[in-house]
Simulated scan of single mutants.
Amino acid sequence: MQQPIIEVDGLGVEFYRARRRRMSLREMVLQGRSSSPSETFWALKDVSFTVAPGEAVGLIGANGGGKSTLLKMIAGVLLPDEGKVRVKGGVAPLIELTGGFMGELTARENIYLTAGLHGLTKEQIDERFDDIVAFAGSQVKDALEMPFRHFSSGMQVRLGFSVITTLDEPIVLVDEVLAVGDRAFREKCYRRMEDLLSGGRTLFLVSHSENDLRRFAKRGLYLRSGRLTADGPITEVLEQYNADADNGS
């Protein structure tokens, strides 16, 4: 029996509902605390599951249900207040595609920087460079020496997707990014995702598109108000989610 590649055990994350305002030194001395509301809520509470290597999992739920928070926990960019997340292997995060790119650097420099930060050597990036650029498209190819901040949002997303999906990480986290770009680029993204899955990658997909969820995921996890409500075949979990939505629950 394969060991899980992702283990989530009793996971809980607590947030403030409103950002506390900064107090002046006088307020700190006289009041000792902020007068701003300090009410909290649990974005995730008592969430537990495991994912086996090569599984394709769709994360389902309404806005504010905790889906993106869970993905960030698995990616390691958020720490839990309760419970544990164990990830065995590296992660290719298709969450904020352009978050690690530097606006003043050229597209060429950003390719080497981002791929290098994810563990590729210069020689490995050299080998993959032409493929990265070709996938991103002719507009990106013609602007390789241009500062990244001058790229259109579409060009930025194309380059980000191309770089992240060329990584060798065994786990791919996807948060709605398959919905970006024009139709032709979306189809390229779909084919790239299918290639990654056929190569044995583990997929964790957040999407509001039932077509995307049914196309890529075999298993569904349904988060409602931060709690894991259902875990099973993607079709059954989607049916439960849709029934809840129809009933207003």
Score class of each variant (00 low, 15 high):
Q3H: 14
Q3F: 05
I6D: 05
V8L: 12
L11R: 06
Y16E: 04
A18K: 14
A18W: 07
R19K: 13
R21L: 04
R21S: 12
S24E: 06
L25H: 04
M28K: 15
V29L: 15
L30I: 11
G32P: 03
R33G: 03
S35R: 15
S36W: 05
P37K: 09
S38Y: 01
K45V: 10
A52C: 14
G58M: 07
N63V: 08
G64N: 08
G65N: 09
G65C: 06
G66F: 04
T69E: 10
L70D: 13
K72M: 12
G76V: 01
G83D: 07
K84L: 13
R86F: 11
V87I: 14
K88E: 15
A92T: 07
A92L: 08
L94V: 05
L94F: 01
L97C: 09
T98H: 01
G99F: 03
F101E: 02
M102L: 06
E104N: 06
L105M: 13
L105I: 07
R108Y: 04
G119K: 10
I125R: 02
F129A: 05
S138P: 00
V140K: 03
K141Q: 04
A143H: 12
F151M: 01
S152H: 03
G154Y: 08
Q156L: 01
R158G: 05
R158Y: 00
R158V: 02
L159K: 06
L159N: 02
G160Y: 04
E169A: 15
L173S: 04
V177T: 07
V177E: 09
V180E: 07
R183M: 12
A184K: 11
K188F: 03
C189I: 00
Y190V: 07
Y190H: 14
M193Y: 03
D195Q: 15
L197H: 04
L203E: 05
L203S: 02
F204R: 03
H208M: 09
S209G: 06
S209M: 01
R215I: 02
F216H: 07
F216Y: 11
K218N: 15
L221Q: 06
R227C: 13
R227N: 12
T229C: 11
L238Q: 08
Q240G: 09
Y241H: 13
A243D: 09
D244P: 00
D246H: 14
